[in-house]
Amino acid sequence: MIIGLMLAFGIDPKEFLTSITIVAAALALTFRDYITNMISGLIIMFSDQLTLGDYVKIGEHQGQIIDITLVNIVINNDDDDIVMVPNNFVFTNNIINQSFQNSRKVSVEFELDLAHAIDREILKARLSDLLAQHNNEVQEDSMKLKVLAVQKDLVKYKVQFTLTNKGKTQSQFIKNAVLNEVMKIKN
């Protein structure tokens, strides 16, 4: 029926198919990187090698995976910058998934109202003293305190430390102790 309509309007079917083929080839060349990027994204999404929350190093980019899309992997690096790494880049570079080897690293994020905010060094000292009480569970001098954001009426913090042994219950116990100390500051 389509060929009959083409002949009725004076269009040569061979020339039409040739034109369509050339256009399809041009589109494939134009969108080649985007298509391979999407296929790479699907492979990453359905493999169990990378998951949200993993701490990875891909090329010169290092940080925690916060999103995996068809186009890129979104990483929150140690400076709290959001880095979008194209999926093709992931496939052509070495990946170090540090979550597999370092599950002892613990992060606790919390917020303090500006009315309850205290000097960063005082907060760091209080949390260091708290973690020193758990010196059997927490590696000495492994604590880092970061200010994630200062907003209109609150300050967001993140404290990170390394446990001496792997263990989910131990990690949760120390996290609760840190959050209880933060609650004392708020009160």
Score class of each variant (00 low, 15 high):
164 T>P: 03
19 S>C: 11
122 I>H: 06
127 L>I: 09
42 L>P: 05
166 K>Q: 14
154 L>P: 00
150 V>H: 07
101 Q>M: 08
128 S>L: 03
70 L>V: 02
46 F>Y: 12
168 K>S: 10
134 H>N: 12
186 K>E: 15
150 V>Q: 13
99 S>L: 00
11 I>C: 12
159 V>G: 12
30 T>F: 15
97 N>T: 07
175 K>I: 13
109 E>L: 03
120 R>P: 04
8 A>D: 08
69 T>V: 03
152 K>Q: 09
132 A>N: 12
53 G>L: 07
49 Q>V: 13
95 I>N: 02
150 V>P: 01
175 K>R: 14
156 K>I: 02
185 I>L: 05
13 P>F: 05
159 V>D: 12
35 I>Y: 10
81 D>E: 10
154 L>C: 05
63 G>W: 10
176 N>T: 15
154 L>G: 00
35 I>W: 05
113 D>A: 10
2 I>F: 09
64 Q>Y: 07
112 L>V: 06
134 H>V: 04
20 I>D: 07
33 D>L: 09
147 V>M: 11
84 M>H: 13
159 V>S: 07
121 E>N: 09
64 Q>K: 13
117 A>I: 03
162 T>C: 08
58 I>T: 02
17 L>D: 02
115 A>M: 08
106 V>M: 04
126 R>L: 14
136 N>T: 13
112 L>M: 07
139 Q>P: 05
61 H>M: 08
71 V>N: 14
10 G>I: 03
7 L>K: 15
87 N>P: 01
6 M>I: 02
28 A>I: 12
64 Q>H: 07
99 S>Q: 08
57 K>Y: 05
85 V>F: 05
184 K>D: 13
46 F>P: 00
30 T>D: 04
117 A>C: 08
104 R>T: 10
123 L>E: 00
154 L>Q: 08
132 A>K: 13
33 D>I: 06
90 V>I: 12
121 E>M: 12
88 N>F: 00
55 Y>P: 01
179 L>D: 04
20 I>G: 04
32 R>Q: 09
4 G>R: 15
66 I>L: 02
56 V>A: 04
140 E>R: 08
85 V>S: 02
29 L>A: 15
96 I>T: 14
2 I>D: 10
24 A>V: 13
73 I>C: 05
109 E>V: 04
21 T>P: 00
91 F>T: 14
5 L>M: 14
76 N>Q: 15
35 I>G: 01
171 S>P: 05
56 V>S: 01
6 M>E: 14
124 K>E: 13
146 K>C: 02
6 M>A: 10
100 F>E: 10
127 L>F: 09
102 N>P: 02
81 D>Q: 10
77 N>I: 03
179 L>S: 03
88 N>D: 10
1 M>S: 07
5 L>C: 09
122 I>N: 05
123 L>P: 00
106 V>W: 01
38 M>A: 09
72 N>G: 01
126 R>F: 07
37 N>C: 10
91 F>Q: 12
186 K>A: 12
140 E>Y: 12
186 K>I: 15
52 L>M: 10
158 K>A: 14
63 G>R: 09
37 N>A: 07
31 F>L: 14
2 I>Y: 06
43 I>W: 09
20 I>N: 06
47 S>W: 06
72 N>H: 13
165 N>L: 14
153 D>S: 06
106 V>H: 01
177 A>D: 11
186 K>D: 04
148 L>P: 00
62 Q>G: 01
50 L>Q: 06
69 T>M: 03
45 M>T: 05
38 M>T: 05
158 K>S: 15
28 A>R: 09
129 D>T: 11
42 L>E: 08
